[in-house]
Each structure stands twice: as C-alpha cells, then as structure tokens.
C-alpha cells in the first residue's frame, strides 16, 4: 500500500439475497483528505460504510482501510479508526467526563493519557461548566461536537462520520465543520456522509452513489462544471434522478 492512500477499495460488493446493495465500487481516499460519501436513502452508503469499518463482511471485492484488509483484519481496522453517527454517539446517562473516560478505556488508552486528553478536550470545547453533567442534558450541537472529539481520542488515522450534523443549528453546524477542517489539517482522514449539499462543498472530493454504484467522484468544483450547474444540490438531483 502506498503511504498516502488510507482507503483503497476495488470492486467491493455486498449482496443480500438477490439484491446487490453495493455493486462493485472502486475508489481511493488520501491521507488528510475530507471525503464526502453521498447518495440517496437506500443507495447503499450505510452498507458500504459498514464494510469499510469492519463490521460487515463483503460478498466480494477488496478493501484496505488504514493499512488493513477488511477480509482478514477487521479487528485491526476498528482499533485504527474513529466512528460517530447521529444515532449512536455517547451515553446519555453518563457525564461528559465519564463518557470520555469510558471511550478512552475502550480504545486502550492509559489512565494518565485519558486524564490528559480529557482535560484538553473539555477546555477546547468550552465544556468546563458541564463536565460533570449528564450528556443527555446537553443541547444536540454540544453532544455532536463532544462525540466527534471522543471519536478522535485514540488519534485514529481515519474518522468515519455518518450524518454528523443532522438537525443541528446552522451556527453549530459550521463550528462542527471547523473541527473537521482542523482534524484534516492535522493529517486525519475524514470520511463523511451528509444530506446537506452545502456541506458537500466543504469536502475535498465527493462520491455520489446511485443504486449501489458510484456514479460520480471528483472535486465539487469539477462535478459542477461537468454537469453545468452552480450547486452541488443540482449535481445530486441530476444524478440521482437519472
């Protein structure tokens, strides 16, 4: 594997019964890249992502994530990536500090390291006043920012974000993206799905899945030129409607 390719996928396929949820997709993601993984509901994004994070075995095809083969070393992938989604993020009935300690422990960080990381993280997010409050009591935007930081606790090579900003207010949504930019500028690869097409424009490159296949993959600028439109939304509508 070349050093700067942190995700390499070739002909990756997942078949359920006689339905190809993911149909021979091929792409690569570079180190430090913000990669947008777009598609309509049911296009196969979640199935593809599950294979990449090592929790679903592909029917056929190859994928190498963070240096590990999804067929042989799924457990190693899990240790080397971060993951957050809108649905599963943090434990509502643990405090901010307890959540950080818990996830730090899961990822095998030492007590000392967890303590250091925890202090830095709480200060960076401005959560000093609520550090001992239950996460369930925090506004959604704070939770999402916290869970993104928690997904980065063990300094993974890649972080997978599944619709991280759904329902979040517009200001917090932008603060969230600043955190993404910061992580990427420090060399972390960000693999993100979103239904906000303005967010697609924040990505270095985006892929658009339609019926299990990747129908487009390029920078937002080149995709807009190719489809002769001004917004990513129109690129999406053109592709997904056929």
């Amino acid at each position: 594997m070349k050093n700067n390719k942190v995700i390499q996928v070739e002909g990756l396929t997942k078949i359920f019964g006689d339905f190809a949820a993911v149909n021979a997709i091929t792409f690569e993601v570079n180190k430090g890249e913000i990669f947008g993984f777009l598609g309509a509901n049911g296009a196969g994004k979640t199935t593809a992502m599950k294979m990449l994070i090592g929790i679903s075995t592909p029917t056929s095809g190859k994928a190498n994530v963070a240096g590990f083969d999804v067929h042989k070393h799924a457990e190693d992938i899990k240790k080397n990536i971060g993951y957050m989604s809108q649905k599963f993020a943090l434990y509502d009935d643990l405090t901010v500090k307890e959540n950080i300690t818990f996830f730090g422990g899961i990822y095998g960080l030492s007590r000392k390291r967890i303590k250091e990381k925890s202090a830095v993280l709480i200060e960076e997010l401005g959560l000093e006043k609520v550090a001992n409050k239950l996460v369930g009591a925090l506004p959604l935007g704070w939770k999402q920012k916290l869970s993104f930081s928690v997904a980065l606790l063990h300094e993974p090579k890649i972080v997978f974000l599944d619709e991280p900003t759904g329902g979040v207010d517009p200001i917090t949504r932008r603060q969230f993206w600043e955190m993404i930019y910061k992580a990427a500028s420090e060399g972390t690869t960000v693999f993100v799905t979103t239904h906000y097409m303005d967010e697609a424009e924040y990505c270095d490159r985006v892929s658009i899945m339609v019926n299990g296949k990747i129908e487009a993959l390029d920078t937002p600028k080149r995709l807009k030129e190719k489809f002769k439109v001004d917004h990513m939304n129109d690129v999406f509508l053109k592709l997904a409607r056929g």
């Binding site: 598609g39 309509a40 509901n41 619709e163 239904h195 509508l237 409607r241």
Partner: peptide, 13 residues
C-alpha cells in the same frame, strides 16, 4: 413535524 429530516435531497424535493 420535520417530515424531511434525514431524507436525501431528491426525496425531499
């Protein structure tokens, strides 16, 4: 109440 939350742009339209 939020009929289109989490729905892709095509279905939203």
């Amino acid at each position: 109440d939020e009929p289109t939350t989490g729905v892709d742009p095509v279905s939203r339209k």
